[in-house]
Design a protein around this nucleic acid. Structure first.
Lengths: 361, 361
DNA sequence: ACGTGTCAGTAACACGTGTTAGCATACCCC
DNA sequence: GGGGTATGCTAACACGTGTTACTGACACGT
């Protein structure tokens, strides 16, 4: 441990270089219109290097009125975050976009909706200059308020009736593609397990896509064929058990989350129902392990990395004071056809792990 | 957007309450030895509430010499982070421990080892008061320097020959337990696929545990039976292919990562080798989906959430200026017996997902 | 000699807060 | 009435930086 050596400030650098503190600041910040003699500049840089000087972030933030920090607010229940194989990719996308900037990332998880006001303070205290909000809730009034105050915000996902810039995928269309894929394979009786409760906009939208797919082919919607999942594999097990009691039994199921789908697979395995022969399955997310389960999961690829990256880029333009190129960014998804839907049955290699088709714009 | 309203400062609160700025500060911080009349206190609180006052974080950090921010530095290659189903749990553990404190979490990923110096600046600029370093590297000299400067550091994982507090599991013992479990089931010829390159301490230690397990039962170590994985399922596929060329073929394999094990499973499936009948498998990590693959994976449970929580708690005591209760915290692991090792063959329910045994201390 | 202008650098202020030392006032006790 | 003390509050400084307005010094043209 040892006694902590006194922090070295710009005053120390100034003294060592034999100039004023102002000059040190001018040199180190490369102020454009400042006229500094080359020799003086050299002396200052040398002194700073020698002392290992680092400008104090708090002091700088104070005078610049900028924290140089962006927030990532996760508004998901712990059970969701806990098993989210998706979060690392989003994080990587965000930090990648921030890599070359001076901005850093502050992570905040909001478990209880009642504690939601916490992240307001982060912005009001100027600890962060703006934030990405993952999993926005419709009933979040404070969010709109904050947006009105002019604080840069980007939604990962989106909210209706709000002009807050957002980055998202077209969940409706993606689900539609998945379901029509099953229909074109000949299925008429198709069940659905949602990824989460329906007050999550993403869950609701995927359900809508499912309904639109059925409607397109004039297949009547049956409420009994839709069961709610809750983000976990365990909930998928349970949901599939429920679905298996419906008569006549569906011949295919669209599960709006790969994680949940894995639970559903276990139930089917235990019941001795073969996939895809007896029951076709399509998932959603394309988690890293989707290709590595048995059977490999046909699923909708969500561009997780890109979602994070685009959200960060958008936020960067906002904090720079520019207006965003577009207020609502929609990234494309792609149906990844593997074995679980039965489409590869006729082909040579039923174990194929690749084979993309049908991308949205 | 609208014109940004001028920030409300403590001066505004003071004016509205008809007191001095000092009084405002005293009231809002509940300074113990300050004597404030109840009526005055009420007026101040009311004024603050009415104006929606939030003390500026930068100013507060500056005067207090505390950023009230802790760092989480991830020193893993992107390929690892990307597929790490483990990170969300660690994050949840950390944020959980920080929930009731005033501290926030700054996340930094260090992709290239050459860019490693970035996180030094975070500390030197006082943007963070201390940090948790995940995936410390032996060749990290800057780290030791920083520790000497008295900056609070906690390692997730550990380094030999350094007195930096760490939180970790006993990888050697955990691997030992996994391997001896296989031996007791009758296997003599046991292969291993590592989780990552051997310059990662965790990978090296798990290999050591494997060797100790063999040694304990007088089984000679054969270098050909050890293949390196690289964190991904894909690398597991490849590694298992290599392992299958060894003659005589091993009857069991210890894979030091569940993710890698899933890749290995695919190779076995394609080769028509049944698990566990023809080949027993034991994994490592107990990722959330380990219980949901076919066959359910026998594996070593890593207490991810607890690792994060303990690291955060330890760091909190350090930044509080107290000396840590113990410099090296070792959390216990547990062997989770499922179907892939063949131990449940004799029992009634081969699909069981539970059944823990053999915990380390 | 005198304005004009450029060059190189600095004094002084601002950012918004926490904290210390001190100042009135009132109260109490002998 | 005078010394001591508790009460309630404030002026002033410190934290470390960025930035604006200003100052000498020197050169130059008339």
């Amino acid at each position: 441990m040892g006694r902590r050596p006194r922090r070295v400030t710009s005053k120390d650098v100034a003294r060592l270089a034999g100039v004023s503190r102002t000059t040190v600041s001018l040199v180190l910040n490369d102020v454009p219109h400042a006229r500094i003699a080359p020799e003086t500049r050299r002396r200052v840089l040398e002194a700073a290097r020698q002392l290992g000087y680092r400008p104090n972030a708090a002091a700088r933030s104070l005078v610049r009125q900028q924290a140089m920090t962006l927030g990532l607010i996760l508004c998901h229940p712990p059970a969701h975050v806990y098993t989210d194989p998706f979060l690392p990719q989003v994080l990587l996308g965000i930090t990648g976009a921030l890599q070359k900037t001076e901005y850093r990332l502050l992570l905040e998880t909001v478990a209880e909706p009642s504690l939601r006001e916490d992240y307001l303070d982060l912005a009001r205290e100027k600890r962060i200059d703006g934030f990405i909000l993952s999993g926005p809730r419709v009933d979040d009034v404070a969010l709109r308020e904050l947006h009105k105050e002019g604080i840069p915000i980007v939604l990962l996902g989106h909210l209706p009736d709000v002009a807050i810039p957002s980055v998202d995928v077209d969940n409706v269309r993606a689900a539609y593609t998945a379901v029509t894929h099953l229909i074109r394979l000949g299925h008429r009786r198709i069940g659905m397990i949602t990824n989460g409760p329906l007050h999550y906009t993403a869950s609701q939208e995927r359900l809508n896509g499912y309904r639109q797919g059925l409607a397109k082919y004039n297949i009547p919607f049956e409420p009994d064929l839709v069961v709610e999942g809750h983000f976990t594999a365990e909930s998928g097990e349970e949901a599939m058990r429920r679905l298996l009691t419906v008569r006549p039994r569906p011949t295919a199921v669209f599960v709006a989350s790969d994680t949940v789908a894995l639970g559903a697979l276990v139930t089917l395995r235990q019941a001795g129902i073969r996939v895809p022969e007896d029951m076709a399955l399509v998932g959603f997310d394309d988690i890293p392990l989707a290709a590595y389960v048995d059977p490999p999961l046909t699923t909708v690829r969500l561009p997780a990395y890109e979602l994070g990256r685009e959200a960060a880029r958008l936020l960067l333009t906002l904090v720079a004071g520019e207006s965003p190129p577009s207020s609502r960014t929609v990234l494309s998804t792609a149906l990844v056809v593997r074995a679980s839907c039965g489409a590869l049955q006729a082909l040579h290699n039923p174990q194929s792990k690749g084979g993309e088709t049908g991308s949205n714009t």
